[in-house]
Design a protein around this nucleic acid. Structure first.
Length: 204
DNA sequence: GCGACAG
DNA sequence: ATCTTGTCGC
């Protein structure tokens, strides 16, 4: 937690200005008894969303899952996979929270700060925060709040499915987080880069 | 002391 | 996250 408080001081949120040509999805899986962590990175061109490069890495699991400390469990494998990547993505989409975290350093933020690259957290469920019911249409959203502070957005990415929890990771703002999530969507609940990384990290 | 709790 | 059986919709 002390490390997270230190990282929090380096986080920047300002509207993204640089153009995005390559978006990378990040995810991790735990094959056979969780003793191994497998991370996957899939870089896609934008706006075509065509796979440009992929990387997978496996490392021994060293930490249990502890709510609020997820990045320390998954980042070692993720950094290993990123080291194998030839290209340098302009933006990272991570499976998990950005600043929608007790100390504002979810896995997307942690990764973004380490790489000093724009990143966005797209989580399938809530870690912290309160929000009002979200409209049923694709694109409908509600701010995710922690007291008086806005920490993210609860976004309906598709009609008839549970909304996702989007939050800025590093070097972007709430609008960027929502806009880039929407731009990387096809016909499913999660953005294409994350879906691709998800499949690579698990199996199939 | 009692719940809540990304993946 | 992972496991596992069954059901729903296109």
């Amino acid at each position: 937690m002390a490390e997270q408080r230190r990282l929090a001081a380096s986080v920047r949120h300002a509207p993204m200005m640089a153009e995005v040509r390559l978006v990378a999805g990040i995810d991790a899986g735990f094959p056979r008894h969780r003793s191994v962590t497998r991370a996957a990175v899939v870089a896609m061109t934008y706006p075509d969303l065509a796979v440009a490069e992929r990387a997978v890495a496996e490392v021994p699991t060293t930490m249990p899952y502890i709510p609020g400390l997820l990045s320390f469990r998954e980042l070692p494998a993720i950094l290993e996979a990123l080291a194998q990547l030839t290209a340098e993505p302009d933006l990272f989409l991570c499976d998990g929270q950005g600043i929608a975290h007790p100390r504002r350093v979810g896995i997307a933020t942690h990764l973004g700060v380490l790489l000093d690259t724009p990143s966005i957290g797209v989580a399938k469920s809530r870690l912290i925060g309160t929000y009002d019911e979200v409209g049923a249409e694709r694109g409908d959203w509600q701010p995710l709040m922690d007291g008086i502070e806005r920490i993210g957005t609860v976004l309906r990415t598709r009609q008839g499915v549970k909304p996702v929890f989007v939050s800025p990771g590093h070097c972007c703002d709430h609008d960027d987080a929502v806009n880039w999530t929407m731009r990387c969507l096809s016909r499913f609940r999660l953005p294409e880069p994350i879906r691709a990384a998800d499949r690579l990290a698990s199996n199939r």
